[in-house]
Design a protein around this nucleic acid. Structure first.
Lengths: 350, 350
DNA sequence: CTGAAAGCGCTTACAG
DNA sequence: CTGAAAGCGCTTACAG
């Protein structure tokens, strides 16, 4: 700001002590200070003592930026996600953080709000040397957008299966299997007319869950006249989608929603339509978000191993950063699990 | 095949191009490259053109760590919070991020899990030069733990009123007023026996809401034999607390819970006790978390302006960072609002 | 066993 | 109007 050229800025900014100050006070070289503080080579116990005391007295804190410039490592990881408000996320993030903290890394949380620009912006932080590695849950960008980072050898772990790259590690679940579990549960309860509230076909999890649904229904010979309504991954989508499904004749006796948020929208639509769950209609969700257990009718759902996904992704990344792993991308698929609550039961008598 | 006996490990770690490379290719000095890229002084259009082209061709990305060392600014802010899973948080964080992004700052999210150690660890990131400023929602640390940072002139904005410091900016709500709003709403509906599910007295918001409750009840002359049960800020606390309140004779006709999560626990306890809400008992929460609208009985609650709190805190911080503000700590109190939903109604006939 | 010094990649006061 | 060079605060190969 030009304006500040004329303003007298009296520097309250007290200079932080540096390694040079510590060295001077302790009467040793900066090399010895560095080694004493980092335990990177032998330092005479007496000298070490003097160094530690001097650092203490001066209130010295190592400048991590300078260190980062020198070592080309900042010991921080980026976690890039599309939506911080997604209830899937906190437990996942906790898994990431626990694993990272244990290895001495700091996690930087980057929320892109489903915007491609922001995805690029945060990926650039790595390109600019601020992040050593990235855990990426991509929402808009394509695989080729990562080529610069891959060329620069910045490790990236992908979450989900939206992007696939032979060089990148990846953590995902088998959405086809998950959908099959949902269908099986309903069929075993006696349902035959099962409708699907599908997620957007542009979403990889959405389309794979739909695929699993269709496939499972076909295997059971229940695929004549399948009812599938595609809605956005939000409550309103679930609400409107359910209304259109209720208009069908004969009415389905069960709904499989592509995620829990959609399922909650469905529960609201059913309540407003005066239909009891599960007596009139059963509902199954997907994710097992924390709310699922406390909504009006606690939700039967396919639980994702959120914490483990975060933990696993972080460990894959740390393996790359430490040089323990140099091979091609590893694919880890974690298991889904059916969680039975009150939203499912036998179909009403015909 | 003999050929394969030697595994060629070619160092994929291609050196990232630096400003020196760009200068060489463009045939100018590094000063000119820097100024051309940053628009910090006049650069001949032809030279600028050559610089930009060279940067483009080389795939140059400015090293933000080196820049940070030189300028002593990293353009990133830390947002330190105790619990990423708290539903209060996402909207707040979004407010922070929007304001920060607009000013060209990156937000680093730091989750302390209610651990004092982690609070210190993240505060240290600022001490180490990695964060220019901090928005802090303290959970365990005390005011004096901040003295090092304050001495080092690192700006901190406090959220809530757990810590108070004359030099620090602060964003909070008036919890006493909020509690009064809750009581007034219930009294106006006709309730006289109102119980309070209080938060921990160690929490500043918990004790101020209790204070507001007591004060409002006293003003209405309803403070004979007040029922107050102190519980932790979680669902289980709300559940157990409600059970103990239901044992009282005469039974209260309304509950004011210190936050929405407690209120949701209360709703579950009431359901399990076979008591209809609001017919048998009314319930008011505090926070207006997203779930509040979709639980079995949508919750009447005191809404906090979460987004604005984040936005406001960030702007206070940015004022300090830019030097626009140098005075003593500013206190901003944002307004609470009563949101009426289905969990409150007139008391049952006596 | 310890120190002097180079160098990480920028920005910016100083010259010309 | 542009360039040569210092310097931010560390780490670490190199000497001794």
């Amino acid at each position: 700001m030009e304006v500040n050229d004329y303003v007298i800025v009296y520097s309250t900014e007290i200079d932080m002590p540096t390694i040079v100050d510590v060295a001077r006070v302790a009467g040793v070289s900066t090399a010895t200070v560095s080694h004493a503080l980092n335990n990177t080579r032998y330092v005479d116990p007496q000298l070490r003592e003097r160094v530690l005391k001097a650092a203490q007295d001066l209130g010295y804190h190592r400048n991590a930026v300078a260190r980062g410039l020198r070592t080309k490592r900042t010991r921080s990881l980026g976690l890039i996600i599309p939506d911080i408000a997604n209830p899937f996320f906190p437990e996942f993030a906790r898994g990431v953080q626990d694993a990272a903290t244990q290895a001495g890394y700091t996690v930087v949380l980057c929320n892109t709000d489903w915007q491609k620009d922001k995805e690029h912006e945060f990926l650039n932080l790595a390109q600019q040397g601020l992040l050593d590695g990235i855990i990426l849950n991509p929402s808009e960008i394509a695989g080729q957008d990562l080529s610069n980072l891959i060329k620069a050898d910045i490790p990236i772990v992908l979450i989900g299966s939206r992007i696939d790259h032979p060089k990148l590690d990846q953590v995902s679940v088998d959405n086809v299997v998950g959908a099959t579990m949902a269908v099986n549960h309903l069929v075993e309860l006696g349902h035959r007319r099962i409708a699907h509230l599908a997620g957007p076909h542009t979403s990889s999890s959405g389309s794979r869950r739909r695929e699993g649904f269709v496939q499972a229904m076909r295997q059971r010979n229940l695929d004549k006249d399948l009812t599938i309504v595609e809605v956005p991954f939000n409550q309103e989508g679930g609400y409107q989608g359910t209304r259109s499904i209720l208009a069908k004749e004969p009415r389905p006796t069960a709904l499989f929603a592509a995620n829990d948020v959609i399922a909650i929208g469905a529960l609201l639509a059913l309540r407003d339509a005066g239909l009891q769950v599960p007596n009139a209609l059963s509902v199954v969700g997907f994710d097992d978000i924390p709310v699922a257990a406390i909504v009006s009718t606690p939700l039967t759902t396919i639980a994702q191993p959120k914490y483990q996904m975060g933990e696993c992704a972080t460990n894959l990344l740390l393996d790359r950063l430490s040089g323990r792993e140099k091979g091609p991308g590893r694919r880890v698929k974690l298991d889904l699990e059916l969680v039975t609550r009150s939203s499912t039961g036998p179909p009403p008598p015909a």
